[in-house]
Design a protein around this nucleic acid. Structure first.
Lengths: 121, 121
DNA sequence: CTTCATAGTATCCATCAAGAAACTGCCATT
DNA sequence: AATGGCAGTTTCTTGATGGATACTATGAAG
C-alpha cells in the first residue's frame, strides 16, 4: 500500500489515465499547440459530452497541464485552452506509447509516417 | 469517432490503461524479470484482489504482454508469469512516464535515483 | 423578434469495474 | 485427521464514471 502510494509512476497515471484525457491533450497539441475553444474541442474530440469535457479540462487545469486563459477583449467571456509547458512535454510520453504500439501491436500506415495524419505526432 | 478508433495511441491506451495493469507489469519486471507465481504477485501488488489479478493477467496474456507457463514438473499444476518481449519493451513507456512525473509533478528521492528503490526502474 | 452559436452547468440514469467474502480442489505438513 | 498454502472462481454489492438531455445567459444575425 505504502510503496504504491509513493510511486511516481502511479501518481502520474492517476493524472493522465482517465478516459478522454489523452484525446484532449492530443487535440490541444495539434496545429502547433494553438489556442482552442471549448466547442472547437468538443467537435474534434468526437463523442465526448460537454460535461465530461468540462470536467477533464478542469482537472487538467488543476494539474497544470492545460492553461485556460480568459480573453478579456471579447464579450461575453471567452476562454481559450492550450497546453502548458508540462503539457507539451507530455507529448514525449504519448510518443513512446505510439512507438510501442506500432512496434508490437498495430499496423497503421498513417501513424507510421513521421507525422501521423490522425494524431499529428 | 473513426479517427479515434484508428489511433494507435488510443488502442494502446485501451490495453494498458486499466487499474492495476501498470502495477502488475512493474512487479513482473522486478528481479531481472524472473518468473513469478500468482500468490507472489498478489502479495507484491498490495491491495489487489485475486479476482482482479486473475482478470488482469488473463488480459495481459491475451494481449501478449505476459507469458503464462505451465510448469509440468510440479503437481498440482503451477503456472508462472513473466513478461514477454513486448512486455519487457513496455518498460520504456513506464520509464518515460516516470521521467515526466519527476520533472513536472513530484519530488521523490527514491525515484530520482538511477534505480528507484520502489519500482526498480 | 426569433433563432443560432458560445460556453458551459444541472439533473438524472445506466453501466461497469472493482472490492469483499466465501468456496473449490489438490497437495504438503504437522 | 486437520490445518494451511496454492491458484484461482463465484457471487453479491457498491461507488464512481460517464452518457443523455435539458437548461442558463449572453450576443449576433437575419
Amino acid at each position: 500500500m505504502d510503496t504504491m502510494k509513493d510511486c511516481t509512476i502511479y501518481k502520474t497515471i492517476d493524472i493522465i489515465g482517465k478516459r478522454w484525457t489523452l484525446c484532449i491533450l492530443l487535440e490541444l497539441y495539434k496545429g502547433n499547440n494553438s489556442e482552442k475553444r471549448f466547442n472547437e474541442l468538443k467537435k474534434k474530440v468526437a463523442g465526448i459530452t460537454p460535461k465530461t469535457l468540462s470536467t477533464r479540462l478542469k482537472e487538467l487545469g488543476e494539474d497544470g497541464l492545460v492553461k485556460r486563459t480568459l480573453d478579456e477583449a471579447t464579450d461575453p467571456m471567452v476562454y481559450t485552452y492550450s497546453l502548458s509547458e508540462s503539457g507539451a512535454d507530455f507529448m514525449e510520453i504519448i510518443q513512446s506509447i505510439k512507438e510501442w504500439g506500432l512496434e508490437w501491436k498495430f499496423e497503421n500506415k498513417a501513424c507510421g509516417l513521421s507525422k501521423c495524419k490522425n494524431c499529428k505526432l
